[in-house]
Design a protein around this nucleic acid. Structure first.
Lengths: 257, 257
DNA sequence: GCTTGACCCTGACGTCACGTGAGGCCTGAT
DNA sequence: ATCAGGCCTCACGTGACGTCAGGGTCAAGC
């Protein structure tokens, strides 16, 4: 019963010869026996094991994890699969977010996202807001007026009283971040994280809707990209726009992911 | 205007110094200027470019792709983003499929009804867990002990980290339901519905898989039928097991159907 | 017995986006 | 002068193989 050679097994299972060599090398799948010429020969048992390996590989387990799982009994296997399932779901959620971000970016590139951009400015500075509206009208003509009116109606809840308090909070956060920047604090340190938590709360309140990870770090990105925001931050402290963006991204990754 | 050194830029943008070195190496982000001592100095333009790089990196572009995208015009950029979007969606679909595969595998492994039952009890009560282990030992003898120990190690993360929070939520829900019961609230009133929504979320998290209507109301039924659960609830409040079951069935009918 | 061509082996380097030192120079403060 | 803390350039390690290079082995046909 000489068993199968590497090429035979490779063809049967759809993997490469090199892969079998590699699995032998790392001890994941050793041949049933090795001829004196050094040839590898695989038997029925090895074929079954290979199937197990490939199954778990498909699921995204690393070879090391596979070795561990195959050595374990059902009990542990269930735990491993459950944990892996959670990872896959997390990845799925992350990818969905990325797709949404791409959609937004595409919309922005297509010029469709004027309203979105507008929404992000909301509550920042009513004077600039007015200037921005004029700009929009000039660019896109009178048919834009309807959209602007609509947005204004949405802002009616935004009373002047709220604006002052909100602006004060924004100022306080910026001041804290500027200090953190000159102090050379890392963006993931506790102090900056606390500031970012306030920033996140502020954004949620300003937008009047939740700000998930991608939206929050995307807003940070806009602080850097958009000259009106950038100018505001850099006037306070050189590099503050980037620092804010980094802080927000870091916070989003760590706490909103 | 000396610009920023590597460490400064790294801190501002939240990347490592090595990353900046690497980006320089591969030509993705070169310093504005290199001193005669060999130091890298970055200016405003480089900071902006770095933000662009990081944005695309988050989306999962490779560094090579990023270099290409940043050198391209809007038209090409749209094409790249669209193509990348398709890739992400394909990955998302693939992951969903993998999750389904895992679910099937878990179901198969649980074909042994004991395993299923055990999974349901998971995170509920360590004492019951101990009872189950003893049962296993009596049935399969001492050689099982090794497996149990091993599995315990694998599950320790679950038990230690999540058990407390999970149990606290379960307790809170039960307390709320007990109060609702003594207050004579109908199981379809808003307050109880809210509690049942939490209960459903808790079950989904505990099981780590969706709980459709039949499963959810079936679990409620089990609270009545199974003495271990029944005792737990009735100790807190007489009739609570039935009340839970009624609430869950009602919720399942109204919101999960 | 010899050639041919398909198959086998063992290195060993390349991939990608950095992490992690090692070893040494530069700079500003004491 | 010393010292800490920056900066630099190598250069190896990661994971799961792909891809040669160089050389031995096997079955079949001549």
């Amino acid at each position: 019963m000489s068993g199968h050679t590497v090429k035979q097994l490779a063809r049967m299972s759809g993997v490469s010869v090199r892969t079998l060599h590699h699995y032998d090398e790392v001890g994941l799948l050793k041949p049933a026996y090795v001829g004196e010429n050094g040839y590898r020969y695989y038997g029925r048992e090895e074929m079954l094991r290979l199937q197990q390996v490939l199954f778990h590989r498909e699921l995204g387990f690393s070879l090391e994890e596979i070795a561990h799982v195959l050595a374990a009994k059902d009990f542990e296997r269930v735990a491993a699969l459950t944990a892996h399932r959670a990872k896959l779901e997390a990845e799925t959620r992350r990818y969905r977010q990325l797709v949404r971000t791409i959609d937004k970016t595409l919309a922005a590139l297509a010029g469709d996202a004027k309203m979105e951009e507008k929404a992000m400015y909301r509550g920042f500075d009513p004077e600039k807001q007015a200037g921005y509206e004029r700009e929009l009208r000039e660019k896109f003509g009178p048919e834009m007026q309807g959209h602007i009116d609509h947005a204004k109606a949405g802002m009616s809840a935004w009373k002047q009283a709220d604006f002052d308090a909100s602006q004060a909070e924004a100022d306080a956060i910026e001041a804290g971040m500027a200090q953190a920047l000159v102090d050379g604090l890392r963006v993931d340190c506790a102090a900056v994280t606390a500031l970012m938590r306030r920033q996140h709360a502020w954004v949620v309140k300003s937008w009047n809707r939740p700000a998930p990870a991608v939206a929050f770090s995307g807003l940070g990105q806009m602080y850097v990209d958009d000259p009106r925001f950038r100018e505001r931050y850099d006037r306070r402290q050189d590099g503050l726009a980037e620092y804010m963006a980094a802080g927000m991204r870091s916070f989003a990754d760590r706490e909103l992911g």
